[in-house]
């Protein structure tokens, strides 16, 4: 991670650290989000994703390190930043006593860019009743309502914290569709955190993996895939111990056939597997989920039953 400041970055976080009691929630985190990309933030619960997002939207002040959104400090320039930023929090905090229509009028008052006809079209598409009280809505409806409020002023940056968590497939579809639509409109940027890796793999251009308060990697999805290899190998015996191949991250499965998730060049990995007496049955690219699991396995090269 360099200290390089991209001049046109929508979000620029440099060496951000934060401690809660003795626990290090963020440890010298740096991320760069460039315009027009869908940026996926992945990691286990407690990896620091929400804490990082809270710094970006100006709910937490950077104690150590630097946070810039549209080139501005979100704590010093809350109006300039928040007027161009749509945010959906993990707990969709809209007052429960409000009705959908009231929440829309309330939010509209804060945003000069509010587009009423767009808001109404979203409400219709999401099938939300404007007279319904927020507290009577289902989880999925609450998420859709939060999304409607975050999208209706057409923000240049959409920040979503675990948008699909705990939702049914139809609400998840609406969320993903909103991400796709947002980025299809030129110049708009999306930052979202998720532990649903197949969703991240669908929509993200760039992925940052967080683990224990640190960014393990920040990279385009394409280069993550190009950098990792999945080898299906056959061993001589059921209890053959897989040798320590260079770049081996994880061995999945037992018995004679094992899947190796590795990092490195496809050809050289294949050659070194063969030279160790393994028969290579298939070579492919791992899914993001496999890379993720291999990367955050408690100890590298750990065997995992499939």
């Amino acid at each position: 991670m360099t200290d390089f400041i991209a001049p046109d970055a929508v979000i620029n976080v440099r060496k951000l650290s934060r401690k809660y009691w003795r626990k290090e929630a963020l440890n010298t985190v740096s991320i760069t989000v460039t315009p027009g990309v869908v940026y996926g933030l992945v990691g286990e619960n407690g990896a620091g994703k929400t804490t990082l997002l809270k710094h970006i939207i100006g709910r937490l002040r950077a104690r150590s390190g630097r946070v810039r959104v549209f080139g501005l400090d979100p704590i010093k320039n809350p109006v300039a930043v928040l007027s161009r930023l749509g945010y959906l929090s993990e707990d969709r905090d809209i007052p429960g006593w409000m009705r959908v229509g009231e929440a829309m009028r309330y939010t509209r008052a804060f945003y000069a860019g509010w587009d009423e006809s767009y808001a109404v079209s979203l409400r219709e598409r999401f099938e939300l009743d404007e007279r319904a009280k927020i507290k009577t809505l289902s989880r999925g409806e609450k998420a859709k309502c939060g999304l409607l409020l975050a999208l209706s002023y057409r923000p240049a940056l959409l920040v979503l914290d675990e948008p699909s968590s705990g939702l049914d497939p139809s609400a998840r579809r609406d969320i993903l569709e909103a991400i796709v639509r947002t980025v299809a409109d030129e110049g708009r940027t999306v930052l979202f955190s998720s532990h649903l890796l197949d969703e991240v793999e669908r929509v993200a251009d760039v992925v940052a993996l967080m683990h224990q308060g640190k960014v393990v990697f920040e990279e385009s999805l394409e280069s993550i895939k190009a950098r990792h290899v999945r080898l299906l190998v056959s061993c001589a015996e059921v209890d053959t111990v897989i040798p320590n191949l260079p770049g081996l991250l994880q061995v999945i499965g037992g018995g004679r056939e094992r899947t190796l998730v590795c990092e490195g060049e496809l050809e050289s990995l294949q050659t070194s597997a063969i030279s160790c007496g393994l028969k290579v049955l298939d070579i492919s690219r791992p899914s993001l989920e496999e890379v993720f699991l291999a990367r955050i396995a408690p100890t590298n090269k750990k065997e995992r039953a499939s």
């Binding site: 993903l176 796709v180 980025v183 299809a184 929509v203 251009d205």
Partner: peptide, 9 residues
């Protein structure tokens, strides 16, 4: 992209 729910890029 909208139909398949994938990134337009």
């Amino acid at each position: 992209a909208e139909e398949l729910l994938i990134n337009p890029n």
